[in-house]
Amino acid sequence: MGRGRVELKRIENKINRQVTFSKRRNGLLKKAYELSVLCDAEVGLIIFSSRGKLYEFASAGMSKTLERYQRCSFTPHENSIERETQSWYQEVTKLKAKYESLQRTQRHLLGEDLGPLSVKELQNLEKQLEGALAQTRQRKTQLMIEQMEDLRKKERHLGDLNKQLRVKLEEEGQNLNVIQNMWSSDAAAGSSNFSLHSSQTNPMDCTPEPVMQMGYHQYHPAEGSSIPKSLTGETNFIQGWVL
């Protein structure tokens, strides 16, 4: 009488379950090896036990078999889209984590949300703030020194311009003095020539020549004179007939 048909269900006895797993696992690995040898087939077998232990068999290498499996299971277009989507998802995840970390660091630098930090983290934060403060002061000092140097350069430049203007003004003053001296010398020479010419002229040459006059001059008595107006007409009449 043959063996009866075994009902397929989970074996509740732990020892029997482990024995059955070992026997059938070895038989399955043996059948996979035989199939690959007899039929020249590329066989890949992966088994995980209930405890998570791995058992595998690959006639051409597991990684090679898996790559071939992926190429056959997905079309190239779908595979590229899936890879690109997965890559973008990973990039977004990294950027999101970095953004959250930067926000958290900024809040800590501003003195916010310091409660969850430990003593060591607070000491590190203190060192960062001290280093940032030292760099800020150093940069401030450097900028002040550069501004002072610029102001000194401007001061020297303005001093040179002042000296140039002073020299130019002195030259203009000297030229003005020379012109004034020339004018005064010319004026003195002209006055001396005029006096010499006046002294050389004959006083007799300046006497007026006699002039013959017809008629008579109208006689006008001086203001305050005691001559009566009635005589002025007669006098003028008499003088009109005298040559």
Rank of each mutant, 00 (worst) to 15 (best):
G2P: 01
R3P: 02
R3L: 03
G4L: 00
V6H: 15
K14Q: 14
Q18Y: 14
V19P: 01
L28P: 01
K30F: 09
A32E: 04
Y33A: 02
L35I: 01
A41K: 05
E42L: 05
G44F: 04
S49G: 12
S50N: 09
L54M: 11
S59F: 06
S63H: 04
T65C: 11
L66E: 12
L66T: 13
R71V: 11
S73R: 15
S73A: 15
T75Q: 12
H77D: 15
E78A: 14
T85G: 08
T85W: 11
S87D: 10
S87K: 06
W88N: 09
W88D: 12
K94R: 13
K96N: 09
Y99C: 02
E100I: 07
R104L: 11
H108E: 14
G111H: 09
E112H: 10
L114V: 07
G115Y: 08
P116G: 09
S118Q: 08
L122P: 01
N124S: 10
N124P: 00
L125F: 07
Q135A: 15
M144S: 04
M148W: 02
M148D: 07
M148F: 03
L158G: 00
G159K: 08
R166W: 03
E170L: 02
E171N: 02
E172W: 03
G173D: 12
I179S: 05
N181T: 09
N181R: 13
N181F: 06
M182P: 00
W183Q: 06
S184M: 01
A188G: 01
G190D: 04
S192L: 15
S192C: 08
N193R: 15
N193L: 11
L196K: 01
T201C: 09
P210N: 07
V211D: 02
L231D: 14
G233M: 00
I238S: 10
G240Y: 07
G240P: 00
V242W: 05
